[in-house]
Amino acid sequence: MNVKSLVKRNYKKQPEIDFPDYKSSIFRAPKNKKISIPSNLEIFGPIFNKKTIGELDNDLTLNFSKNKNSPLGHKIIVHGTVSDQFSNPIKGALIEIWQANAAGKYLHQDDKNPAPIDPNFSGCGRSLTSSDGSYEFLTIQPGPYPYPNRGIEWRPMHIHFSIFGESFGQRLITQMYFEGDPLINICPMVNSIADEKAKKSLVGKLDTSRSNIQNILAYKFDIVLRGVKQTFFENRQEGL
């Protein structure tokens, strides 16, 4: 009998949950250690239907534009692949993104940053990965923005990513940053990750080969979800 299980998560490569430099974590981060249990239901997960994804869902320059007006700012391509820890591409993975507009403002009533809303930009997009695990978004370079933390601090330019692979246990929510942004290294949310290599893996790399073909700046961001292992078990006898 073949049994599937998820590769154990390596918390050394993940952010610290209880990280007071990020003030909002102080009263929200659980204090107890997580309890380790074998994955079971979490091996399965929802699979999203191609038919639910609209043609413009991955084009944020058009999916909210009025009368074909472009949002302000410069266009960028954000692309990459979703694979598991064994380098197997994951097809049909759902990627949902959200981001601020070029002025660093979200289309959200709770965003108190006094920057202008862009009537042609929602900052919302989604896509399913192709059979080779690849995805692509056309969007606008998000601006950095101030937010209250230890006084006013600035978030580096970023795009929020939510990803569903094949298993509920592979679920990932993260952020992509932009190569060269000086705000990355002073961001407490980034610095909640102690491991330098892990931190760097969140930085989208300028992809000049792609930019030159399409005349639009391109960034590459590859995403790795937890691996799913197949283990062979001898069929056990009743009562053992």
Binding site: V7, Q85, T174, D195, L202, G227
Partner: peptide
Amino acid sequence: ILDETPFQT
């Protein structure tokens, strides 16, 4: 084996 992409809030 590759490292899993880290979470962010």
